[in-house]
Design a protein around this nucleic acid. Sequence first.
DNA 1: CCCCCCCC
Length: 587
Amino acid sequence: VIIVLQLEILRTECTLIGSPTIYEVNAPQPKTGSYSDGLGIHGSMISRAEQGVTNIAYSPRQGLLGSSTAARAEHAVKNLPFSGFYGPMQSQNAIYAKMQQLSLNSHKGQRLAVPWAFGFPGNTYGYRVHPLYQQTPPMYMNGGPVTNNEGPAIPIANLNPYLARWTIKGRVTGKTEVRHFGEGKVFSFDLLDAQGDEIRATCFNSLVDQYYDKIVVGNVYLISRASVKPVLRKKANPLNHEHELILDASTSVESCSGDDGSIPLQRYNFRQISEIENLDCSSTVDFLGVVTSVSPSVTIARKNGPEAHKRTIQLKDMSGRSVPITLWGNFCDVEGQLLHSQWESGLNPILAVKGGRISHFNGPSVGTTSSSQLKINPDLPAAEKLRRWYAAEQEDDVYQTIVQINDEDFGTLSQPDLATVVATISFVCSGACCYPACDLMFNGEQCKKRVTADGDWWWCNRCLRRSKTCEYRYHIVCQIHDHTGSTYATVSQKAARDIIGRKAQEFYTIKDAVQNGQEFEKIMQGILGCEYLLKMSIKKVAENGIVVKRVIVEAERLDLSNSRRVLGAIDKLSKDNSSSSVGDIEI
DNA sequence: CCCCCCCC
Ligand SMILES: [Zn+2]
């Protein structure tokens, strides 16, 4: 037995060679009688390209006859390490199924109808699956219908402008909205076949009316007689295919009933968020991540054209990095709204982004385009893995050391890195720790700039106005250290209040207004040299070069006798080590 | 035949 795989197609049709006969898998002897259609044509024909193994005719005398229309199984697993199919995978052995099919046909002794083959000069090599067989489970569940009147479906990868007649069978993985331009309108949709290859199809004008509603994302179609054009602007069509389809009046689009799941619902080529710096601006990329925050929707006035809705989500993946993703238009209103309500109720959904557009404006970010696809909580093994990873990450008390947060890689321009450290406050920088702040509104938010007393008023040099009132705010910079090193950080209002234990107004009164040195000393003694659990935000900002900003966002005084952390560690130790009462507690 | 993909 000689098995030939992965041949390229030179001709999609050719005349029969010799008199091939049916080979029966289960019979001890090959069946020698050939089938006749009554028109003097002998031989057997097998459908082409269901799972990429195609056109195989067995003859005991001549060996294997047939041409493979390029078995492209490798496409299913290319783009490692993060490519994945979304949806059920075909697991049957295609050759085995073919032989079963042959065997069944011959047992039934039925004639094989090949009506489509007769429209061509000579005899066409190939066999049309009879509709009767398509409905016969279980053997014919394997591929569903693969033909229409144009013949059997060929792999999408093989489409090119020089094919006279072809049919492709593909699942619609996404479609754009209808876009209007001048007098015309347009929409596109993407087709994926069982070999994992994709092609974009586009409809203009009256074809938009004809097909926009008919094309349903997720459904499988047999398509033939569209014009196959080379992709001239790769930037506008991120699919791998060299060509794209333009539908016209003669195009046939047949909805493929009996979808058997041989074509995945979506094809992803996920990249790690940590790679994003290396991805070109405007390139199109897939990401799979946990949604860690969702902003409200805002309306943007566009330079040209109508206003647009947008919102920004943060997506984090197992590389540990996050990236802001801007959802525009419908993605903001539909998926974004869903994500927002889930996030607000404390959930962190998984999101698959297909066809996100990379930007490097003020640090890396991703935006949706008209041909992007979003899938919330996709049914993918990688999504489940990610969910577990994130849950574990949330649960684990993971602390960083000061040396780690001082690392120059910590914190990026686009987004702060968050860290939790256990550190001691070495000292609080001298000078005013709190100040009277402007309580006027400036650019839609409280101004907060230091104001100066002006009789009964407070004068703001930024607002250039005075106010009867002011708000006392903390401005604390302190040094913290742990066993690895030390660093400086500013303290948020909330953290400062928790550390000092008083409102800024009260502290101001003690320190500056009344100058109660004894009370002030007492407060500082309760702070300096004490250990805190500090949640910190570290980011870089462009200010005459890159400046690292470290902010203590939250602070919790570690009281060892009543520490959740210590109690938790003891609890864990007693569980892990229940047979022994001896062990070190690492805190 | 579109090919814009938005805002800072
Ligand atoms: Zn002001």
